[in-house]
């Protein structure tokens, strides 16, 4: 009986979690993969810069091109497997539709205006506002684009349809770069928002 009561309590506690356990795990695994992919990717970029700048070597991962490639081609498995698990669980559990929709341009603009004036409420961390909804949906799509353009760079001969959809090998390099830049932009804003509402960090870690 004691055990039963305790289990019920535990279930209630877990049931009240702002973010389910699978979400918290996939979030932090993704954070790890994104950091490794981005920092090693910067080192790879430096080997033959597309544009008139380089990333500071001290910010990169891998030590040299060969090391950076090893990190990149190891972390890609984590990024892809973890990302697929997230998307499947998100869609399969119905959370994707429940938390991210409805979403309309009018709602987005209203929430964006409120956010910029500092009037947007964070009273219920279970509910994403429209700016969050669009930002999170965007970063999901952007991550898919990063993986697909990366596949073209890694295996341009084996994925001809994907290669032609992105315009060929050289355009795929640019798609991969700008998708990275968009992801870095998202992460920057994301971290600023977490710093402004620190209990979201606790919610994403402990669940409540």
């Amino acid at each position: 009986m004691i055990i039963k009561t305790s289990m019920e309590t535990l279930n209630t506690l877990e049931g009240r979690a702002i973010h389910p356990l699978w979400l918290r795990i996939t979030h932090w695994m993704n954070a790890l993969a994104v950091v490794a992919m981005t920092l090693s990717g910067w080192r790879i970029y430096n080997a033959s810069p597309l544009f008139d700048f380089r990333f500071a070597d001290g910010l990169t991962l891998g030590g040299w091109l060969g090391g950076a490639l090893q990190w990149h081609f190891a972390a890609m498995w984590l990024l892809t497997a973890n990302g697929l698990a997230y998307l499947l669980l998100n869609a399969g559990s119905g959370r994707l539709w429940k938390r991210f929709f409805p979403l309309s341009p009018r709602m987005f603009l209203a929430d964006l205006r409120a956010a910029l004036r500092g009037h947007l409420s964070h009273a219920d961390p279970r509910r994403y506002n429209s700016v969050q909804r669009l930002a999170y949906l965007f970063v999901m799509a952007d991550s898919v684009l990063l993986v697909l353009s990366g596949l073209v760079l890694w295996k341009s001969v084996q994925f001809p349809l994907l290669r032609e959809l992105l315009g060929g090998y050289e355009p795929a390099r640019r798609v991969h770069f700008f998708a990275m830049a968009a992801l870095a932009g998202f992460v920057t804003v994301h971290l600023v928002m977490v710093a402004r509402v620190p209990r979201t960090l606790r919610a994403m870690t402990l669940g409540r």
Binding site: L32, V35, A36, L39, G58, T60, L61, G62, G63, G67, Q70, W71, F73, A74, W77
Partner: peptide, 21 residues
């Protein structure tokens, strides 16, 4: 990860990355 240099120089990390390769 932030101290990228030390982890890259670590022999066990290098071996693990070589295995993945």
């Amino acid at each position: 990860l932030l101290t990228g240099c030390s982890i890259t120089d670590d022999e066990s990390v290098e071996n693990a990355l070589m295995k993945v390769s």
